[in-house]
Design a protein around this nucleic acid. Sequence first.
DNA 1: CCGTATCCGATGAGATACTG
DNA 2: CAGTATCTCATCGGATACGG
Lengths: 125, 125
Amino acid sequence: MKPRHAHHSEDCRAVSAILQRVGDKWSALVVTKLGAGAMRFGELKAAVGGISQKMLTTTLRGLERDGFVTRTVFPTIPPRVDYELTELGRELLGPVMALVSWATSNTERINAARNAFDDRSGPAQ
Amino acid sequence: MKPRHAHHSEDCRAVSAILQRVGDKWSALVVTKLGAGAMRFGELKAAVGGISQKMLTTTLRGLERDGFVTRTVFPTIPPRVDYELTELGRELLGPVMALVSWATSNTERINAARNAFDDRSGPAQ
DNA sequence: CCGTATCCGATGAGATACTG
DNA sequence: CAGTATCTCATCGGATACGG
């Protein structure tokens, strides 16, 4: 079902999908937190800060599905669930951290550009 | 003027915002295409493939706003508009390409993990 | 403690039609 | 050719409440 010449849009969509995995609101943050080692659900929630229970579970399920984290349930009372990066997840951490640290050190420049743009585009629009 | 320890959320939200800029459906693709040099609107649309006019404009405006691309209008008939990466945009290209190439070379592993997960979670759900 | 279910507003994204 | 304006539908993300 491909068009006649299967150019790189195949790859592009795959790449785009992965970028969206780490590009959603919380995934990158969660992955970097887990970079420090295994954590349980509650710890993670506290570490990330501001994330709702629902979004944390959703995010973790997504990461688990793509093979970036493992989920380990201890059938105790109260229950305890640990999350940990897989090998794949640790490999992902490299590029992600690179992007994160670039972003961190260029926040100011981006904000400046943004303000300049908004200024040009009409403050009283 | 921050406490020593509680400064995570500030940075995190800024970083998260930038990750979402490149993490949306088209930005990363557009940035990588522009990595090859300046292009006009139509070229870009063809190069990306599958993007609607509306989304390309929206994406480019966002990138322009954040200072990653410049927009140059030639007041000819028919009109011609060129887009080009700024210095900031070219710097961004590095980390983004790293992530993109990691994603490209690990698509198979991710798909495998995804299939395995979907399998576990109930194929007939 | 961890997770699910539900509701709801906000945003994302495509299709189409129209202007300079 | 490039961009805007709508309209419409899907998905995201938060709040809240409930269940094992």
